[in-house]
Nucleic acid binder design. Structure first.
Lengths: 220, 220
DNA sequence: CGTACTCTCAAACGATCGTTTGATTCAAAC
DNA sequence: GTTTGAATCAAACGATCGTTTGAGAGTACG
């Protein structure tokens, strides 16, 4: 149980599988990446996946849980530093929401692939996977919504959620590097992400500060 | 060639395959939906796909081309009505960009599934598919960027593209119905989409109108 | 009629999929 | 030294995949 005879020679078998699966799922999708590809990339035996995780589906779940827990705790830690303080600006809360996500997408060591896995999970529209995300995500969203509501007292709670939803959409898109903006070859990945984060925060701040309209349709 | 003996009895075999493929690709992904599922749903023979389209990859391409051409022409038609006119508001251009996309996502008859296929295509991160989208999409984006630039003379062209990219992200997210906002059971699908479009347009207008900042980091 | 051609169909092809099996390796427990 | 049990391995399992085949149905044209 606690021995793990091979554990010290490098990263453990489980970790190598998780890393390889994360990268391959991001590139080829859950159905598109086979366990043979995963185990070959991780340089472990094919049977190791079913031995350590039970099945391919369980492996997918584990890939999610590992990164999502880290993202959630980073976001909440950043929020805790600024919540309910007088000098807190709207941009600070957006920063706490956006930057951990974009940071995760540029971490080396395999985490970069996760954001595309996450985006794909949304696209999969798999209800069980969706509920899994909602369960591990809902309380974070509620805490951010509360802080946004404090800084934007003129907006109804439902309006807050509408706008936060828009921000999340743009952020998800940016995380997956979907964008049409081609990073110039002389701009480092880090700088590009930083520019994306700043643009997104400023854009979102302006959108969130927009005064609420009563019930009229869009001005035409 | 022109006879098509079975064509008149219902929709053609090709059309039935395209419709079924669109729906199943959206639900299960390109790799996850098999040709046996597609042909069973379309009530055609398994070999019909390879006969009419050549391969599964060609079928995927055709699913895209059919809907993308329609979206592009609708957007350009809406833009042509308002471009380069004195009384045109920023919201009008956003409407021309956003509403055809959201309309397409609520059209019955199968088109609704396409938006999720489109979102998935982004997530797939397939370079050939990406280039295909860029080729059939780039000129539309440039025309919109030109009109936005006319209405926002204070913004550099690169800044326009950054912000338009953010709008596209939020729109893609909304099209796929990824949102965290749960549509209430007493709200019709149409009304929900309409509310999403209006929120998105207002939010994006505020974000676009935000004055450009020189080179300083985000206000903290 | 016969010929030509398009389309459909059942059946099978080889390849690859996720999973299971049973033997083997190796470190720790006794 | 023997036993124990976790971990790894090659090999095979049945199922399903995309694709191909060859025969047959149906229409149009001479």
């Amino acid at each position: 149980m606690t021995s793990a005879p091979y554990a010290s020679r490098e990263r453990s078998t489980k970790e190598r599988i998780l890393g390889a699966a994360e990268a391959l799922f991001a590139t080829h999708g859950f159905a598109g990446a086979s366990l043979r590809q995963v185990t070959a990339a991780a340089r472990v035996n094919l049977a190791a996946v079913n031995y350590h995780f039970g099945s391919k589906d369980k492996l997918i779940e584990e890939v999610f849980r590992r990164r999502l827990d880290e993202l959630n705790s980073r976001r909440l830690a950043a929020l805790a530093k600024i919540a309910n303080q007088d000098e807190t600006q709207l941009e600070d809360v957006l920063d706490a929401y956006i930057r951990p996500a974009l940071d995760l997408s540029r971490t080396d060591g395999g985490a970069a692939a996760f954001v595309r896995v996450l985006a794909r999970a949304y696209a999969e529209h798999n209800d069980t996977l969706r509920r899994f995300l909602s369960d591990n995500y809902g309380h974070v969203l509620r805490q951010f919504a509360a802080e946004f509501g404090r800084l934007l007292p003129g907006l109804a709670r439902e309006e807050i959620y509408w706008r936060l939803d828009i921000v999340t959409g743009a952020l998800t898109y940016a995380m997956a590097d979907f964008g049409i903006i081609q990073r110039k070859s002389d701009v480092a990945e880090r700088d590009h992400r930083e520019a994306a984060a700043e643009h997104l925060i400023r854009f979102a701040a302006a959108g969130l500060r927009n005064p609420s309209v009563s019930n009229s349709p869009v001005t035409r």
